[in-house]
Amino acid sequence: MLNDYNEVLQKLCHHLEQLVGPGVEITPQTDLINELAIDSVKLLNLIMEIEDEFDISVPINALADVQTVHELASLIHRIKAQEQ
């Protein structure tokens, strides 16, 4: 069943909270690199977790355009929709 965007966003935020720890506010506009200090290695590991969660493959190339939580959630949502 196609996950809607809000469901994707909610699950993504849950993964991010586990990654950066408690006490950090995460919104759709949060910048992954500058605000959450997620470097390239952490981002690739996060992507592996997300891929398992949503049963998708995220091409590394597509991450070049991703800076915010919203952009990553949109990308996941789009790939999930394409693969269904």
Binding site: L44, I47, M48, S57, V58, P59, I60, N61
Partner: peptide, 13 residues
């Protein structure tokens, strides 16, 4: 090499 190729890059565990 993958980046230079312009292909879609997917990692496996």
């Amino acid at each position: 090499g993958c980046r230079l190729s312009g292909a879609e890059i997917i990692r496996f565990k």
